[in-house]
Simulated assay, not measured.
Amino acid sequence: MSVFLMCSNAIAQDEDERKGINIADLVEMSGDWFIAYRDGIKQVQADETVPVENEHTSSFVLKRSYFTLKKELNDVFSVRYTMDLTIDTEGDDAGNVETRLKYLYLMTKPRINSKVFTGTGIEVGMVHRPWLDYEQKINTYRVQDNMFIERNRIFNSADFGVTVTGNIGPKMDEGFLKNVNGVMKGKYASYSLGIYNGGGYSGIENNNNKVVAGRLTVRPLANRLPQLQLSGYFNRGKGNSEFSPDFNQVLGFLAFTEKQFRITAQFHDGVGDFRARYVDAEDPSHALANHGYSFFGEYKFGKSPFSIWGRFDEFTVEEINEETQRVIGGFTYKVNKMIRLILNTEHTTVDGNTEDIYELNLEISF
């Protein structure tokens, strides 16, 4: 079996670290496993329907397991199938492994004879939303927990709909994409735009409204400072409930990616959320304003397998004055290109109540 270059599902690595297995030239297979020992409050996913409770746990856990199959049908069409496996935490089946689909789509790469719009791709089905797949290629610590936006339950990474992606202008130099960071293929700009049901890949459609979302990323100094990227992102639509509260959001993002280190800063301002949780208790059609920011940094110690990283989040829901602050940090030991060990801690404060989390994470990506 030959190894080919392919994006990992949930924790995308640098361009020279992409993994996957070609099975008999018929289908391409890859996977990501997140296994941890966790002591602290229970991990809660953005798409869970149960109320958030600061329940303390101390146990070995399977956080997530992703299994992906890809098949190129011809030069234009390909398909992807990704299973999301986790532990069921509700009802009589609590403790069993729960399986659901995360991605199931047809990808087409139309032949467009243009020097302006290049690398165009269209996903139809259960598809990537435009933001989190991009961010997770810079902050590769999804194994610890969700990114800032998903952690605060604004939206998740996939949905039913259509996504169009591509570059504006030529492709970035291959050397930079391989040795520094391959998150954005376009030398000057890239984009992702789509229309979705709005409730995420695990949510049934509860109204007839759709959400439009988009990202534009630019390298303002592509020739002199290609490490710098600036992004803007938006959501516009309704929250996924029968009351259809507003769900509007804007996000600004700055990233500087070097081979040895990377830093990011993002600022979010919006009304409501994808699952219509941030609403007035007495009038669920009235969405609540919310805003926040997040900073992330990672430093790799030369050619050694060690790195250090940290993150700071702050998020506020107006009217109910709910404030959340998180300080996250850890050390990483890279066993090889498929295995990482991550020792991390998290200090979370919600409305003055604090909880500390300690973890040893094992990430396996192949």
Rank of each mutant, 00 (worst) to 15 (best):
G182M: 07
R326L: 09
A12H: 08
F315H: 12
E90W: 09
Y188W: 13
N152E: 07
M172N: 02
L225V: 02
G20C: 08
R142M: 01
F34N: 00
N353I: 07
P110Q: 13
G237D: 02
T140V: 13
A265M: 10
S365M: 11
S114G: 12
N139G: 06
S202K: 13
S58H: 11
D16Q: 12
I21D: 03
D88M: 05
I87Q: 12
T99I: 03
G119A: 14
G199R: 11
Y191F: 15
G352Q: 15
S78D: 01
A281T: 14
G121R: 14
G237K: 00
R236I: 12
R326S: 14
L228M: 13
E15C: 10
E150C: 10
G310C: 12
F117P: 08
V76Q: 07
F148S: 04
F301V: 08
L104T: 00
P245W: 00
A46N: 12
S202N: 11
K137M: 10
G95L: 13
A10T: 13
V116C: 12
N290K: 03
V327M: 05
Q45A: 07
S304E: 00
E135L: 06
M147K: 12
R219C: 01
D351P: 04
S58P: 08
L341H: 08
N321P: 00
N181L: 01
V27E: 01
N167M: 05
E359Y: 01
L104M: 01
N361P: 03
E314I: 04
D84G: 00
D145S: 03
Q227C: 05
E205M: 08
E319G: 14
K303N: 10
R151C: 04
N9D: 07
G310W: 06
S285V: 02
W309M: 03
L193R: 09
D32W: 01
Y66S: 05
A289E: 02
L85T: 03
H268Y: 07
R38H: 10
A36L: 05
F366E: 04
A276M: 06
G297P: 02
E17H: 15
Q144V: 04
A276P: 05
T120S: 10
V271H: 11
N361A: 13
G20P: 02
V127M: 15
H347Y: 12
D39N: 10
L341N: 09
T120P: 11
Y196E: 01
E135I: 06
V61Y: 02
T89R: 15
L62G: 04
Y188T: 07
E17I: 14
H286F: 11
P305S: 10
I342M: 04
P130I: 13
D173P: 01
D92S: 12
I23V: 15
D92E: 04
G272P: 06
E363R: 13
T324W: 03
N209D: 11
T163Y: 00
I87N: 06
